[in-house]
Design a protein around this nucleic acid. Structure first.
Length: 204
DNA sequence: CCCTGATTCGC
DNA sequence: GCGAATCAGG
C-alpha cells in the first residue's frame, strides 16, 4: 500500500479529528500505526495538543533562530499573496473538548442494592462480609498492585481502593479469573448471592 | 500490561 | 519517502 492522495487526505482528516494513529492505521488498512505516525511527521502535521512525551517541546528552548525571513526586496515575484496557507485543519477546529469520562468509578462500601437477576452489575455491594474476610481483604489490599486507571486491563482486578477524591486511590490490580472483573478475593465479596448471607449464619 | 505519539535509521 | 524498531510518557 502506498500513500495515495486519497489515503493521505483521509489521514489528514482523521488526524485532525484527533483519532489515534492506531485507529487511523486500522481504518486505512495496509499500514501500521508506525507508518501513520511516520507519515504524519513527514507531512508536518505533528503536535496535536495531545498527550505523551513533549520532550521535543521541552527540549526546544535553545533554538533562537536569528534569521527567520530576511526577504528584503522583491526576489521572486511568484506570488503576491503573502499567506496562501491558512492552515485549514487547525483553523477548522472549534475544539469543544467535552470530557466524556468523568469518573465511572463505583464505591465499594455503600451500596446495599443487590439485584440477583442482573447479569453483570458486579458493583461491589457493601454486603455484610465476615470480619475475618474483611480483615483479610484489608490486608490483601495493602499490598495491592496499586494500578492506575490506565493500567487496568481485562486481566486485572478493577476493584477500587481508597477515596477517588484523593490521591489515596488506586485499583487492586491482582490477576483476575477469566471473565471476572475482580480478583478472587474481591469477587468473593463483590457478588454474594445474598442467600449466602443467611447461610453464613447457619454455617457458623 | 496496555496504550499513546516521537524519533531513528536502514532501506 | 517509507516504516519497523525503538524510545518515552501515561
Amino acid at each position: 500500500m502506498s500513500w495515495t492522495d486519497e489515503r493521505v487526505e483521509k489521514l489528514k482528516t482523521m488526524w485532525g479529528e484527533g483519532k489515534s494513529a492506531s485507529v487511523i492505521a486500522k481504518e486505512l488498512g495496509g499500514v501500521t500505526r508506525n507508518a501513520v505516525i511516520g507519515k504524519v511527521h513527514r507531512l508536518g502535521l505533528s503536535n496535536r495538543t495531545t498527550t505523551t512525551t513533549k520532550t521535543a517541546a521541552a527540549a526546544e528552548p535553545a533554538k533562537a533562530e536569528a534569521a527567520p525571513a530576511p526577504k528584503p526586496a522583491a526576489e521572486k515575484p511568484k506570488k503576491p499573496a503573502p499567506e496562501p496557507k491558512p492552515a485549514p485543519a487547525a483553523a477548522a477546529t472549534p475544539e469543544p473538548k467535552a470530557e466524556p469520562a468523568p469518573a465511572p468509578v463505583h464505591i465499594p462500601r455503600s451500596k446495599p442494592q443487590l439485584i440477583p437477576g442482573q447479569p453483570l452489575p458486579p458493583q461491589p455491594t457493601g454486603n455484610e462480609v465476615s470480619p475475618e474476610t474483611l480483615a483479610n481483604i484489608a490486608q490483601f489490599e495493602k499490598n495491592a498492585k496499586k494500578l492506575t486507571l490506565m493500567q487496568l486491563t481485562e486481566r486485572t482486578c478493577k476493584w477500587p481502593i481508597g477515596d477517588p477524591a484523593t490521591d489515596d486511590f488506586w485499583f487492586c490490580g491482582h490477576p483476575c479469573a477469566a471473565g471476572k472483573p475482580y480478583c478472587e478475593q474481591h469477587v468473593s465479596i463483590a457478588f454474594q448471592p445474598m442467600s449466602s448471607r443467611r447461610d453464613r449464619r447457619a454455617s457458623r
